[in-house]
Structure formats: structure tokens, C-alpha cells
Write a protein that binds this DNA or RNA. Structure first.
Lengths: 193, 193
DNA sequence: ACGGCTCTAAAACGAACGCTCTACCCACTA
DNA sequence: TAGTGGGTAGAGCGTTCGTTTTAGAGCCGT
């Protein structure tokens, strides 16, 4: 690399792959497109990822996993009340979506759906990501005094509803689905107090 | 066509496209693959769909729209109580998913996400589909005595949560997300009575 | 100065892509 | 019987796909 302070080639490739797959999925994203976007050559791509497109996609999903988890974690830590915290998450997702021109939805959903049952590596990576996110929500609810089984189930629905609402918001180019989802999830959580 | 009683070529092509796009998305589905699966030739495909892949994809999404709407409609009509009716929908989705070996999720989500913001025709068709489904749920709630604005918002979250849960169920190859989603949605609906 | 290493550069492979084109089959009407 | 037109058949267009290959640039400790 040219300087130790700038982002390394490997990281640039992963980030470009993650962003492209977020927008257009796994199948529609080409390696030439990735290397162009990452300002790297095909040689570099295959140097760092000898497993080719599949290995690179798995790495990109792990990247998206960490990215989304970070967004969740900060929103959940910033707000005490669990319902309000979920509303904050929904708002965060909505503004990110709008600011990207409704292009950047969930970083892994598209690829996960495309390859569910067809590309085991990618499916497994996506499954791990969803589980990580649910764990973040479940732990938050536990900390707020909810019982283990209640927190476990609520975490499922919180993540799934946010995912569905983000998808809907992206397709309809409107923040409304996420705003409504936040309100309803807070109401649902409060009903278990 | 050979006989008036068997399915016409055009319909076979649309169904094959819909099923392939449901499983692997728009970008990863090729026209040769479609014509092979539909037992039609490339000539027939371009005869019925001069607009090529895009036009065919839009038609396939309309097909998926009608298919999913039919599933929703029958489940919503069969059960009186609105919460129980949504649980019935979730169960229907779960069994369909399991019976297909976790391959056939929502018929349009994958394509919708892939092309949101990139292929306007497909995005518009998907948006219409989601709106149709919400209308089915909203009308059911209205018939059960819910106020217009409450029914409108609940319809959003019902569809989005079912979508998110179905995606999660597909990725984790488990009916649990849909089962939990049904229970939570029924609870949310009942909280507005 | 040196061999050894990581990383970059670019050409080229066969296969598959979306799409176009021409020829043909065949039920129908005149 | 000749003609008409909807539908079928498949070769082939140029392009792009994922991948492989070969060569070389830049930096290291010795």
C-alpha cells in the first residue's frame, strides 16, 4: 500500500463489494465492476480472495453485519427506554435510506434472499448476521428487565419488522413504513411490561 | 398451442419467470434458463415479450402479486377474528416455505430489492403489489370495526412484519420467525380494540 | 547487490449473457 | 390450393461474465 494511513486495498475491495451488493445484490454485481469501484485491479482481488466471488461475498456480508450492528448498538445505548430506543433505530434507518437517495437499504438482505438455499456460504453468513442483531436487541430488553423468553421472541420481531419496513420504505421511497414500524414495535414492547 | 385445455406458452413463460425470480432474483435469472424451464424457445419468449427481460420481469411480478394476494385473501376470509386471521396467514406462509425446501419465499421481494432505484418498471410493479396486499389487510380490519387511520397503519406493519419474518424464516430455515410474528401481530391488533 | 516476498497489472480463456435474425410449421380463410 | 399470420425453432451477433495466467513493480533483510 502507498501509505500506512490510507485504507488498504483489501479493505477498499470489501467495502466496494458490500456497497454494490447492498444496492444490486450478489448475482448482478460483477468482479470487474467491483475492482473498478474499489480502484483496484482484478489481480489484487484474486490475490486477497483466492476463493473468488463467493469468498469475497461472504467477507462483504460480514462487513455489512458489523456495520448494521454498530448502528443498532449506538442507538440502543443512547436511549434508555427500550421502546423509544427501537424508535430511534427506525429513525436512524429511515434517514440513512433517504440520504442515500433510497439506494442503501439493509446491506445484506438482497444477497441473503438471492442465495438462500443456493449458496450455502452466503446463507450461513447472513444467518449469523441476523442472529447477531437479534442478540443486541435481546440483551437490551434483558437489561430493561424483560424475561428471557419474552426478550428472545421480541428480538425476533423487532429485527424482522425493521427489515420488512426498511424494504418497504426503499421500494415506496417513503419513510412512513419505518416510522409506523417504530411506533408499533414500541407499543408491542410496552404491552409486555 | 397444441390444445386449448393445456396451459398456453405465454402463461408457462410467465410462471417459470416468476418462480425463478422468486428463488434467485432478477439479475441471476437468464432468458435461456427461463425458456428451458418453461419448455419454450427463445423465439417464443421474444414473440410474447418484445420488450425483453424487463417486460417479462414486470409481468412475472404482477403474477407474483396476484398469487400472494390470493393466499392472503383466502386466509383473511376463512377466519373471522382479525388477529387469528393474521396468524393463519403466517402459518400459510410458513408451510409453503417449508414444503418448498425453504426455496420459495415472497415471490417478488428479491427482485424488488435488487432493482429498487435502478430499474423503475420493476420497482413500480413491486410498489403496486405491496399496496394491493396492504389494502387487503386494511379492508379486513375495517370490516372488523377498526378506525380508518388505525387500520391503515396496522396494514403497513402486518405486511412488513410478515415480509421480514418470511425472509428470516427462509434464511434460518425455520418456521419460528413466522410463528412469533403471527403471535405478536395478533397481540398488537388486539391492543387497539 | 541480492534473492525473496507481497502486491499490482493486464491479457486472454471458455462460457454465458441479452438480443436479433431468418426460416419454418401449421391451422385457418378464401 | 394458395395465401395469411400467429407461433416455434435455433443459429449466431457482440458483449460481459468469473477465472486463470504470466509478468513485473516495489520493498525487505542480509
Amino acid at each position: 500500500m502507498a501509505t500506512k494511513h490510507e485504507i488498504g486495498t483489501r479493505e477498499r475491495i470489501v467495502r466496494a463489494t458490500s456497497r454494490l451488493m447492498q444496492r444490486q445484490g450478489y448475482g448482478a454485481t460483477g468482479l470487474k465492476e467491483i475492482s473498478r469501484e474499489a480502484e483496484a485491479t482484478l489481480g489484487s482481488v484474486y490475490h486477497f480472495f483466492p476463493g473468488g466471488k463467493r469468498e469475497l461475498a461472504v467477507e462483504a456480508i460480514h462487513h455489512g453485519d458489523r456495520e448494521f450492528a454498530e448502528l443498532l448498538r449506538t442507538a440502543l445505548e443512547r436511549v434508555d427506554d427500550p421502546g423509544e430506543a427501537i424508535i430511534a433505530c427506525a429513525r436512524e434507518l429511515a434517514s440513512g435510506l433517504r440520504e442515500s437517495g433510497w439506494l442503501d437499504g439493509c446491506p445484506i438482505t438482497t444477497a441473503a434472499l438471492e442465495s438462500a438455499g443456493l449458496v450455502p456460504d452466503i446463507q450461513r453468513a447472513a444467518e449469523e448476521a441476523f442472529e447477531n442483531w437479534r442478540t443486541l436487541v435481546r440483551d437490551k430488553l434483558r437489561r430493561c428487565g424483560f424475561a428471557e423468553d419474552v426478550a428472545h421472541d421480541l428480538a425476533h420481531t423487532v429485527i424482522n419488522t425493521l427489515e420488512g419496513a426498511e424494504m418497504s420504505a426503499q421500494v415506496s421511497q417513503s419513510e412512513a413504513p419505518l416510522e409506523i414500524a417504530g411506533r408499533h414495535l414500541a407499543r408491542l414492547i410496552d404491552s409486555y411490561r
